[in-house]
Nucleic acid binder design. Structure first.
Lengths: 134, 134, 134, 134
DNA sequence: GTGGTCTAGACCACG
DNA sequence: GTGGTCTAGACCACC
């Protein structure tokens, strides 16, 4: 299984699941139309409450990333760009960068870190830029 | 005053204050030894409870960013760089970048955003690199 | 119950609780993953305010000793050794030893006291060294 | 001057002064009958409030370590063993040892640390054991 | 049920 | 004046 809960993480479990599934989609490990394991199975595998998983799935559905097909499980939705206030969009970025600056990293070191993290995300997730090969 | 609370923000007020003050320190608007407004004054200005502000100040004290002197006010602490696991350090960055990718931003757009945010931070905070030339 | 507040103690109640819980963990009475009584229960048992206990738990969470799971109670965190400046680490020891010297204890008496206190701590806490022999 | 205030220390200034003077006495740098600088001079040297120093001196007087001779300044009192509940006496030691155990130090490492700290204190402060030479 | 946060108002310790 | 702590009681989020 590709999901895990970290008990040493302060964040609520459902939020950890949301983040992880988002990351899988962003990386391209989960693509449009691919099925996700059922709420019950995830709950059983991780040993968490069924409701907790359901809330995570619902959150992702609300964000337009998952499509819940009645009786047929849950699949990755067709990519719809999330509509956000551009100002709001950058807030977590701003917060993360502040964190790094206060930790003493130089501007160059931070840009390098961003670069390497972006490459990790783009390894498989180039679905948007892909042009012709299938 | 340079602080504000956003009621539309999900995060607790005290955490908003922590973030804002951290940003001010990272930008160089607040420097070593500079005094912060008193807990009571901030509370009055923002219309929040005294304790809420005290919790924010205390959090920053625990993180080593503020030096709170009982009876004598609060000042920005002398910076000792926080030593952290580099892996842990990048986690919020990773999360923020995932967020942006899912919002549909291209790799190039994200790097540009990072660049512009870093420049905002570096406007004033170059005090360490500047030596003597003017 | 294994906690108590001493009203003759100058230190704030929440700090007394922090110290006591730390001691229980150091002694091995509380081990990784063990659940602590709820904030409400401790507050009721000790006759102190709910917030006072919450502050103590939160402090221990910040120090990485407890894992507080919203809605699911509090457990002893999986230990990751705290990395500290060795000089800073010895400060409370230095202060305590000074105290004992001024009270008139001989060097030998102090070492004996240290020995006996350490034995109390090591009674149960040898879980890491024990391997497999019984 | 042999006293200093550390602004990055959370403890109140007067308590820092008390600790430092106690350490000087324990080490033997200050011996019976030796004069201390006046309250005013210490206050001026350290740039702290006159009252703050006075409170520190008074605290030490209450503990029987200093003798304030009206109009003639302050001297180190003739050593009187501090009367304490033996249980109370060990509390700071217990707390310091707990701290070290939780930081991951082994029993042996702690005893070695105690040994080295005690030797620092005994360098000059052997006034109790000294037998014959004056 | 759990913990998290906030308020209002009180009292104490420090400088 | 400053910050520190505590109380009582409320409401919210999580499981």
């Amino acid at each position: 299984m590709f999901l895990a809960v970290d008990l040493n993480d302060n964040r609520p479990i459902y939020q950890q699941l949301v983040e992880q599934i988002k990351a899988l989609i962003a990386r391209g490990d989960l693509r449009e139309g691919m099925a996700l394991p059922s709420v019950r199975q995830v709950a059983a595998d991780l040993g968490v409450n069924l409701n907790t998983v359901a809330i995570a799935y619902r959150e992702l559905q609300d964000q337009g990333l998952l499509a819940v097909r009645h009786g047929a499980g849950t699949v990755v939705a067709s990519r719809r760009l999330t509509e956000c206030d551009p100002g709001e969009l950058a807030r977590p970025l701003r917060s993360a960068l502040t964190h790094l600056v206060l930790a003493g990293l130089s501007k160059a070191a931070i840009k390098q870190l961003v670069q390497s993290e972006l490459e990790k995300l783009d390894q498989k997730g180039a679905s948007n830029e892909r042009v012709a090969s299938p």
